[in-house]
Amino acid sequence: MLSNLASFFSSGANLVFFVFALLTIGGAVFMLSFTKVVHMVLSLAFTFISLAGLYVLLEAEFVAFVQILIYAGAVTILMIFGIMMTKHRDGQGEEAPKKPVHNLLLGIGVLCLFGILFYGIQTSTFPGTTEPLAEDNSLEIGKLLFNRYVIPFELMSVLLTVAFIGAIVVAKREED
């Protein structure tokens, strides 16, 4: 089992994958553990950017670009505007109760889950790719998006526009 681990880290791409995976998981854990909303948004943006790095490693450049453009950019900025537009109280006076037994059990559970996943991945055999990848992924996605899936694409743009207008209306009602 450890020989598989040594052969896994002998490749540079696998090492970069491991680093991006750790950054993605770390950003997600920090997003859940932070108490200030701005810190949560920044760690969520960090998670999105790390996911884009994983997509680049998977040779899905278009998906990585969309991940950065839509999620790390637009959604994060939209969340920050939402924070600025809404009223929220400062939670300085509230302190969470300490639960050492709960934290210990949580740590043991996380380590057990990591061990089970690690063992399952190390003992599994994954089939290789059977079909070649497209020469230009973005061109093929563009052809499919604007030929075969043009109606769902346009419906999604209308749906997102309606959701954005609805969010503005809800924010204005809270202000009044």
Rank of each mutant, 00 (worst) to 15 (best):
M1G: 12
M1P: 05
S3N: 07
L5I: 13
S7P: 03
F8D: 06
S11M: 00
S11H: 03
V16A: 05
V19W: 07
V19R: 00
L22Q: 10
T24Y: 03
G26A: 02
G26D: 02
A28R: 06
F30C: 12
F30K: 01
M31T: 15
L32C: 00
S33V: 14
V37C: 05
H39D: 14
M40T: 15
V41C: 04
F48R: 03
F48K: 03
I49G: 09
S50D: 08
A52H: 02
A52P: 04
Y55D: 13
Y55G: 06
L58P: 07
E61W: 09
I70G: 06
I70R: 05
A72N: 07
A74N: 12
A74Y: 08
I77D: 08
M79T: 03
I80A: 10
F81K: 03
M84C: 08
M84L: 12
M84E: 14
R89M: 08
D90F: 01
D90K: 13
G91H: 12
Q92C: 13
Q92R: 15
K98Y: 07
V101Y: 10
H102Y: 14
N103L: 06
N103M: 07
N103C: 02
L104A: 12
I108F: 15
G109A: 14
L111Q: 02
C112Y: 11
L113M: 10
L113N: 02
F114L: 10
L117D: 09
Q122P: 00
T130F: 04
T130K: 05
P132H: 02
A134R: 08
E135I: 10
L139E: 14
L139F: 09
I141G: 09
I141L: 12
G142R: 11
L144R: 10
F146A: 02
Y149L: 11
F153L: 11
L155N: 11
M156C: 12
M156N: 05
S157H: 11
V158A: 05
L160A: 15
V162R: 01
I168M: 14
I168S: 00
I168W: 03
V169N: 02
V169T: 09
V170W: 06
V170E: 11
K172N: 13
K172L: 15
E174C: 07
D176N: 14
